[in-house]
Write a protein that binds this DNA or RNA. Structure first.
Length: 449
RNA sequence: GGCCCGGUGGCAGAGUGGUUAUGCAGCGGUUUGCAAAACCGUGUACAUCGGUUCAAUUCCGGUCCGGGCCUCCA
């Protein structure tokens, strides 16, 4: 079995993965800001890093997966005002919806799911350290990180200070020493959420929570930090600056892994542009597992265009896998399969492998059903029995299972009597109600269309 | 304006310096009372122009096109 290789954004190349502590991998992924339902674009990293964690667990004794929840953010404040509900209520509801979406997509719960508001103390400690060591300064009630004090600033995103200043579209606040300096702490009005601090009542800037929480649960230096491509700059760049300066380390995470965008008609899915489909909407049309399959059908770093047609095709592909391996007892994923995933999480090729195995089972050349199931389950697929997969339907039921079975029996008798027109009639009637009959030597079974 | 990424057959989407990706769809078969499923056969795909090479879709350079980041964003 080969070793895991990951494309490291820090180096812009695939690298062999070696954890800092043998047999214990620490991985941190940026989770949602809980102001609204997540969309399919948000679901992609959830699914992909879920697979990465499953793969890591297969190969390392201990894996600590931390995925935060950002529950202090100005978007949350705005939305709570708009909805006229408390921030607390909004967060509570959104987190609950988020967890429902995760379950529907078969995304496993992380080992730690820290919330920003529960780590204000750690953030303030880090800010204090940064001020003491000259990396941060107070100005107009804010605390700002001084980018000039960080020699390697810009390394992750591959841009120089000059470039950033040249291309800056940001309005530079007058109290900043340098245009690229960013906020660690900012003052809160009476009606904004805030915490007492040496700098007055205020709230944290966006980036500091991930630095504080990753350090708390994984240490100053840990193995993998994951997130969407759009977090590279400024979020992850700033996390690195804060963390490395506060901890006096060379690295924050060893490997930085970023997934590509989900697009709609070729354009980035994004809340702010209104170009998005929520996971909930998608789930009203498709099974969670079909959506999950669709999200891994392209390589994680490539863009993925989301459409109903795409998910429908994923459903068909799953049907094929279920037919051959649905009832099988999972054995163990083969080394060949692990190798494919170990090569920078090549899920499309992993799926192709499953289809190849499926063909060989259908041809009768290999008895690989158990292997297919085990491999698929490592991807978080084939988690149902075939019966559940083919007969289950959320939004029925005008027809009970008993009624269907009665119809099948009636048809059986008609067929025995060679009354094929009656038999075909029953088939037709059921088809109209979304039920398809499948004749075989062993009798007739049914499935939902 | 600066920087980055990508262009593969009808669609989606891997991969490779010289040999079948895979799935869906299509066509022709086998099988089947019907319907499916399944199997067999079937596609002269690698944006474009040059270069390197015995050989390039694969490496290098230009061009065109698309997308992204530089502001909140997974």
């Amino acid at each position: 079995m080969s070793e895991l290789r990951l494309f490291n954004t820090l180096r812009k190349e695939k690298q062999a993965f070696t954890p800092i502590t043998p047999n214990h991998v620490g991985i941190y992924a940026c989770g949602p800001t809980v102001y609204d339902r997540i969309h399919v674009g948000n679901a992609r990293p959830l699914v992909l890093f879920d697979i990465l964690v499953r793969l890591l667990r297969k190969q390392y004794k201990q894996v600590t997966y931390v995925r935060n929840i950002t529950d202090v953010d100005d978007k949350i404040n705005q939305r709570s005002l708009g909805l006229k509900i408390s921030i607390d209520q909004l967060c509570k509801q959104t987190i609950s919806d988020f967890h429902d979406d995760c379950i529907a997509l078969n995304v496993a719960t992380p080992d730690v799911e820290p919330r920003a508001t529960e780590h204000i103390k750690e953030m303030l400690q880090m800010i204090a350290t940064l001020i003491q060591t000259g990396h941060a300064y107070e100005a107009a009630g804010h605390v700002l990180f001084s980018v000039e004090t960080m020699a390697e600033y810009g390394k992750l995103s591959g841009r120089s200070m000059d470039e950033m200043i040249a291309g800056a579209r940001v309005e530079v606040a007058s109290y900043k020493k340098a245009p690229a300096d960013f906020v660690l702490w900012k003052p809160s009005d009476a009606d904004q959420p805030g915490w007492d601090s040496p700098y007055g009542r205020g709230r944290p800037g966006w980036h500091i929570e991930c630095s504080a929480m990753s350090a708390k649960y994984l240490g100053a230096e840990f193995d993998i930090h994951a997130g969407g491509l759009d977090l590279i700059f400024p979020h992850h760049e700033n996390e690195i600056a804060q963390s490395c300066c506060a901890h006096e380390t060379q690295k924050m995470a060893q490997y930085w892994v970023h997934n590509g965008y989900v697009t709609v008609n070729g354009e980035k899915m994004s809340k702010s542009t209104g170009n998005f489909v929520t996971v909930k909407e998608a789930l009203s049309k498709h099974r969670g597992e079909s959506i999950r399959y669709a999200l891994m059908a392209a390589h994680y770093r490539a863009p993925l265009d989301y459409s109903d047609a795409q998910v429908l095709e994923s459903k068909q592909a799953l049907d094929r896998l279920y037919r051959v391996a649905g009832e099988a007892i999972a054995t163990t994923p083969s080394a060949e399969f692990i190798d494919i995933l170990n090569d920078d999480l090549n899920t499309p090729q992993a799926l192709a492998f499953l289809h190849q195995k499926t063909k060989s089972v259908n041809k009768g050349t290999h008895d690989a059903a158990g292997e297919i199931k085990a491999c698929a389950q490592l991807l978080g697929l084939l988690s149902y029995s075939s019966q559940e997969w083919f007969q289950f339907d959320d939004n029925m039921q005008d027809l009970t299972i008993e009624q269907i079975e009665n119809q099948i029996e009636e048809r059986r008798i008609a067929r025995l009597n060679k009354d094929f027109s009656k038999a075909d009639n029953i088939r037709q009637l059921l088809v109209q109600q979304g039920i398809e009959l499948l004749d075989s030597a062993d009798g007739t079974s049914w499935q939902r269309k």
